[in-house]
Design a protein around this nucleic acid. Structure first.
Length: 440
RNA sequence: GGGCCCGUGGUGUAGUUGGCCUAACACGCCUCCCUGUCACGGAGGAGAUCGCCGGUUCGAAUCCGGUCGGGCCCGCCA
């Protein structure tokens, strides 16, 4: 019967067997300490028998072991207990020296990211690296809990599409039995169609962008948490997104305390309720930024990366929130897509917001134009053909009844990146894909 | 796509105004010593034609040109 590392203290006084990877050897002559890592953590094993120590000769970190012995309460041991008088059984010997050390923090300096990512199958075994993806899994779990609490249904939309439709971003093209298929740049149209079915839907799937971006924020494949909500209005939609962020942070704080500590993440400055996250218009932010830095972006349709960073620091200090909703997006702009909805009172503005968190845009949300005729009009104005195979399915959903609705696309990796204070979104991605990297 | 920067043992770095470099340091690895380590400690050892190609020079890790790989910022984009 196998015991996990996290349960070792409960086994005190009992013969116990653990299984896992040799994580660290400390040979002190007549006494050796070895650390064995399993899915739950690390156990210290004290080896005094020379024959047992000798079994480890020539074996490298990564060797898979089964260790049977007596668990002893020991305050000097990590976790308060350790295994004594062990019998070591080598399940999978490793004799080649690993190319990278995994038992101490690995360099995350930008110029060393290549090494970190090239050896990803091994570097992920480092406990600090592993912690990033424990946090990611917890964020994803929190999303699902939030959606379940609010009566959403989870869906999965296709990623192979007949043609590029949404506009805005470049798509990947690939051969599809002699036809050209594209990889989905978002779940946009499908989640909208599904509003007509479930009213509230979400999905957590990869999305693909063929943009030649070389920044710390962009990848060609990333996970979006796509949500779409029927019978909602703009203010309410922002509140949902804010509540969702608050729930994610709360969940990570309670379930990943150890992981946050290992990345030296102390605390979060965030309102408990989404409605208390500050709303600032693009124009206001341009003005504040100009006053503070003398750098002028007034008149621009979008925020510069430096402004996104600055406004979050500003809001943390002055508005008690590291998250900010950026509103006041122009309706007459290339940032306005054909399915967006203009504001009823002020048609010059779009019912759209970006949610910035700790300096990075993590979510884009908007109300969608739900009136069939108006949508067709906007589509045509955008150069789209309503009769094409790319638009017809979406339009048929509209034709037969779409309520006012809105939703968001939320970057999972960016969220984890900012929670942990990582410099590059690729550090928060298991096997990142970017303009230069397609492997591992 | 534009600008700037970087490539030195397995890993992280120093050296880069040409000669003292027959390339240094730390970690890792190997051998030996060490019974409470937890970045264990100590002694010794192996391991790099300095990304690649060409040029300048008596002499190149160091200068020049090209090339390949990578990073950061901007743009695009989320």
């Amino acid at each position: 019967m196998r015991t996990l590392a996290r349960d070792i203290a409960e086994q005190v006084g009992k013969p116990t067997t653990i299984q896992g990877w040799l994580h660290k050897k400390r040979l002190l002559g007549g006494l050796a300490f070895i650390l064995v890592r399993d899915r739950s953590g690390v156990v210290q094993v004290v080896v005094e028998d020379k024959d047992e120590v000798e079994k480890l000769r020539g074996l490298q970190i990564g060797t898979v072991l089964e260790v049977s012995g007596d668990v002893t309460k020991e305050d000097r041991a990590p976790g308060g207990a350790e295994i004594h008088e062990p019998k070591l059984n080598v399940l999978v010997p490793v004799t080649d020296e690993p190319p990278i050390e995994i038992d101490k923090p690995i360099s995350h300096k930008s110029e060393n990211l290549d090494t970190l990512l090239d050896y990803r199958p091994l570097t992920l075994r480092n406990l600090q690296e592993k912690a990033i993806f424990k946090v990611q899994a917890t964020v994803l779990k929190a999303f699902r809990e939030f959606f379940a609490d609010n009566d959403f249904t989870e869906i999965n939309s296709p990623k192979l599409l007949a043609e590029a439709t949404e506009g805005g971003a470049e798509t990947f093209k690939l051969d599809y039995f002699g036809k050209t298929a594209t990889l989905a740049q978002s779940a946009q149209f499908y989640k909208q169609m599904m509003v007509g079915v479930f009213e509230r839907v979400f999905e957590t799937n990869p999305t693909y962008r063929a943009e030649p971006s070389a920044t710390t924020r962009h990848m060609t494949e990333y996970i979006t948490i796509d949500a779409e909500i029927g019978l909602i209005e703009f203010e309410e939609l922002m509140n949902y997104a804010g509540d969702c962020l608050a729930y994610i942070i709360k969940t990570v704080q309670s379930e990943c305390a150890q992981e946050l500590k290992s990345w030296n993440v102390q605390s979060f400055t965030l309102p408990e309720s989404g409605k208390d996250i500050p709303r600032l218009t693009i124009t206001e932010i341009h003005e504040l930024f100009l006053q503070a830095t003398k750098e002028d972006h007034t008149g621009e349709d979008d925020l510069a990366p430096a402004e996104e960073k600055w406004i979050c620091e500003h809001a943390k200090k002055n508005l008690n929130s590291e998250a900010v909703f950026v509103v006041g997006w122009p309706a007459k702009s290339k940032t306005f897509k054909f399915y967006h909805r203009a504001n009823e009172q002020d048609p010059e503005l779009a019912d759209r917001a970006d949610l910035l968190f700790r300096g990075v845009e993590i979510t884009t949300l908007s109300m969608r134009e739900n009136r069939y005729d108006k949508l067709i009009e906007q589509l045509k104005a955008n150069g789209g053909d309503p009769d094409s195979a790319g638009y017809a399915p979406l339009l048929s959903a509209y034709k037969y009844g779409m309520p006012p609705h809105g939703g968001w696309g939320w970057g999972l990796e960016r969220t984890v990146q900012r929670i942990l204070g990582l410099n590059n979104v690729k550090e928060a991605t298991l096997f990142p894909r970017d303009i230069n990297r397609l492997s591992p």
